[in-house]
Amino acid sequence: MKSQTATDQISPWLLGLRDAMPLLGGYIPVAISFGLISIQAGFSTFEAIIISTLIYAGASQFLFVGMIAAGSPLWLVVILSLLINARHLVYAPNLAPWIGSNRWWPWLMHGLTDQIFALAHTRLPELADEQRLGWFTSASLTAWFSWVGGTAIGAVAGETITAQWPLLGEVMAFALPALFLVLIVPRFTSREWYISLIVTIAVALLLTVYGLNNAAIPMAALCGALCFYLARVGVISGDNTDG
């Protein structure tokens, strides 16, 4: 991202809105799909919107409506929906040094999705203390509203949209990998990071191709972390003089 002087010249609210714009390309098509699937699973438009507003976590929402439609026991639905979100446990601690004591911060954690974390982890350190709350509020609300709005559109008109512009959803969805790429490219700074990032991306990609979407993120990150430590102690690089 641009230097701190660029972030100084623009209101943090506007900057948050601008930074969150690429997320919309990924959020809206997925939210439209969720709205459509919810209606097909027997939920009303209002219920689909409430699920997106309150749970606000893509994968677990799809699981939630899918398992309920399949008649699964509710306790199992709740446990599995929460398990999918367990990866969120590591997000907030990484942002904590840049989060102040304002009483709104805890409530804003509702908006700490995968993508907002990725964005905030890069942007918050670049901002001045007094800019961070405004930036995070703006970016997270933009993403949240787009998710809820996309769900509403999908519930009301999802079938018509997907039938009329089948390619649009796929093309817009590329905004998400493009955004993650831009966030991760500056991290390729050393041998350890090269090895661990490439392994992580490859493992996540392979697990997803083989249908293990929900396990992909935590499993791939753990594999990458293992490679990072192995590379650091020289086992992979051959620096280990004992070997």
Binding site: N94, D114, I184, T200, G224
Partner: peptide, 20 residues
Amino acid sequence: LGILAPLMVAAMLGVSLVPK
């Protein structure tokens, strides 16, 4: 924790790269 955070973003990249 500091190492895991960028790796989580890299994992999200890997997942999102898979075409529909």
